[in-house]
């Protein structure tokens, strides 16, 4: 799918400024940038949640997974009800589909009857991913889906993201401020700064030979253990 000349304005403020970006089928495009650089506005425009000008071609069904797994599930719905929300089937068909979707995100089917408050953050985020997959999206937008998670469970969610690409051929726009995380999951990296994409290209190239000053600053700032 292709995003062309996409602009998002809130009043006089331009949050996304004429962004053009291609997301090849079955690929993960990582979007990095600091907060306020327009990443989430771009995600919301692509998902049809905010008005925009410009063109989005080749993705009719876009689903989004949100940053905060504690706010993105209705506390009064069971896991099964949430995951089944986008599934248009009869009762039995829906139950089987929910089971399949939970399986896709490596959650036991027994979780369907539980409420979100009984789940850990990582499990909730998987439920949110399963719910999005239920609509069979052409594109999955993941907006900072690991930032609210602990490091000890982040790894499992990142592995899941990669396996969804490998096994389902899912295309994804993966947004994060954490360059190490983006580098790990993405095939292509785009760097956003003040509403514009300042650099994009294959992950190894952007990380290995950054062309833009801002990309270099980002790389420089990644905390290292040693």
């Amino acid at each position: 799918m292709i995003i062309e000349d996409l602009t998002v304005r809130f009043g006089a403020f331009t949050a996304v400024d004429r962004v053009t970006l291609e997301i090849p089928p079955g690929r993960i495009v990582g979007l990095v940038g600091e907060s306020g650089s327009g990443k989430s506005s771009l995600a919301r425009a692509v998902s049809g949640l905010v008005p925009y000008t410009g063109r989005i071609d080749g993705a009719r069904n876009v689903q989004m997974v949100f940053q905060d797994p504690y706010a993105s599930l209705d506390p009064r719905m069971t896991v099964g009800e949430s995951v089944g929300e986008g599934v248009r089937r009869d009762r039995a068909g829906r139950r089987a589909e929910v089971e399949r979707l939970l399986g896709l995100v490596s959650l036991p089917a027994g979780l369907a009857g539980r409420y979100p408050r009984e789940l850990s953050g990582g499990q909730r985020q998987r439920v949110a991913i399963a719910r999005a997959l239920g609509a069979a999206p052409d594109l999955l937008v993941a907006d900072e889906i690991t930032s609210a998670l602990d490091v000890s469970v982040q790894g499992a969610v990142l592995n899941l993201v990669r396996s969804l690409r490998d096994e389902l051929g899912l295309s994804m726009l993966f947004i994060s401020h954490n360059l190490a995380v983006v580098r790990y999951v993405s095939d292509v990296v785009a760097v956003m700064h003040q509403g514009r994409v300042v650099e994009s290209g294959p992950t190894e190239r952007v990380v290995g030979e950054p062309a833009h000053d801002y990309t270099r600053a980002l790389l420089e700032a990644v905390p290292r253990l040693t």
């Binding site: 949640l49 689903q63 989004m64 599930l73 949110a128």
Partner: peptide
């Protein structure tokens, strides 16, 4: 809330 946004995207 995010869960209503999610439902809207799912076409509910």
């Amino acid at each position: 809330s995010d869960y209503v946004s999610a439902a809207r995207m799912l076409g509910v």
